[in-house]
Nucleic acid binder design. Structure first.
Lengths: 236, 236
DNA sequence: TCAAGACTTTTGTATGACAAATAGATGGGT
DNA sequence: ACCCATCTATTTGTCATACAAAAGTCTTGA
């Protein structure tokens, strides 16, 4: 975990503190020299970390002023690191719900686009991904193959502007399965729903693909609710 | 235009060449010293540029290997700079169409969410944005206020994961209006459609908000088609 | 009272040196 | 002839230092 390069570690440290609310939007960060003393690194390292955070929209630096935290609307929330810091800064369930909400917004449309605009090679990738889901053993493989499936579907949509959403699906699925058991009887049903999506996409039936994806998402939401209910019961 | 800091200019130069296809995904970039000679800058500057490009998902550096271009799926296409480089590397009309396609995918859902989940302050921001649209004079103000309106709607949806999409709307609108004339008679109709959205959101009517947004998007698409037809006519 | 200029703080850029990682070459043993 | 260990060369990673440039803030003079 801590075998990243030095600037990456410094970047994470600062990023987590920003996402954690320690430095609110509009607020001023310590200057580069201070950070260097804080982490015991050279200013070079701090500068590279700050450059990276700037590229992710978290801050903005100006001479004599220092580095200011940008408004949250500027934050590149679909960046892997930023999203991760965001996740650890908020309630686990709330995070899961917001990712699911985003999925409901995006993925039905993605499925429809995929059905209407896929190329043969792309749909082949989707079929391969489905096969991988079927033969997946163990939680790690199951999650990975599920993510790969939705990633492949994203590719089928043939619009590069939509690719960055993959990270949300990835986060939603990993956080979702984090709690479910390996022998979930639900899984075979979920597989059927994935199959339905592939079928609709292959048939170039946009409406059916949208419907199938909606069914899958509703099923996922049910899993979440069920888990919440079980937890509430335990508490009682 | 060229008054950015040095590392920003170097970053842009490299980024444009990557998006332009000169360095394909999987390909290797020149090393840092070479870039330094190319641009006549110190290695420090090149490193900061590369750090930024790395943060945007375009490349990945490793000792002894150098910097490799990442697969396009890793590219942070919703980053302002990356999207800009992307735009200038592709056909203007194709870019506009892909942004509109993305908007059709996202914005109806955004409108619905906005209607269902907005807070009073957020809807107030929306109303303000609408007022600004009405009093906007000149192409620059019109585009800016239109962007601000959709940005405000995005905020009303109350899901931070969706905020990064604002950049797509911004690009779509600026490229759209780039060609339309200031005294477009269409504008008053577009204003009515925006009004309808605000009304539906205020009334917390998700379905109506979605429908109104769909109408607005269809109207926008018509403008695009109309322009295309006019151009084709001119050519003849 | 106000405005022009000096001052000061912070980031921006340059240079040179060394550390660490690692692909590829080299060589030795079987 | 083949394979494994090792050595080498290249590239990024990190450090230290110095100075330039930007931009608030203070000072001073009219």
């Amino acid at each position: 975990m801590a075998k990243d390069s030095l600037h990456a570690r410094v970047e994470r440290a600062i990023g987590e503190r920003i996402l954690g609310g320690e430095f609110p939007p509009g607020g001023l960060l310590p200057n580069e020299a201070d950070w260097g003393r804080t982490f015991g690194t050279s200013r070079t390292i701090v500068r590279e970390a700050i450059r990276s955070l700037t590229a992710k929209g978290l801050i903005r630096s100006r001479p004599k002023i220092g580095s200011r935290v940008q408004p949250r609307s500027q934050w590149n929330m679909l960046d892997r690191d930023v999203l991760e810091w965001h996740r650890s800064a908020m309630d686990r369930r709330a995070f899961l719900l917001s990712t699911q909400e985003a999925r409901r917004l995006i993925e039905p449309g993605i499925a429809e686009l995929a059905a209407r605009k896929h190329t043969p090679e792309q749909v082949e990738g989707l079929v391969t991904a489905l096969a991988a889901m079927k033969s997946a053993k163990g939680m790690t493989q199951i999650v990975a193959s599920d993510v790969a499936f939705h990633e492949a579907l994203l590719v089928c949509a043939n619009n590069e502007l939509l690719l960055p959403f993959g990270i949300i699906i990835e986060q939603a699925l990993s956080n979702l399965f984090d709690f479910t058991t390996q022998n979930n009887p639900h899984y075979s049903f979920a597989l059927k729903l994935h199959e339905a999506i592939v079928k609709a996409v292959t048939a170039a039936d946009g409406t059916a693909a949208r419907e199938a994806m909606l069914a899958l998402l509703s099923d996922t939401d049910e899993v979440i609710d069920h888990r919440a209910a079980k937890k509430a019961k335990k508490k009682r």
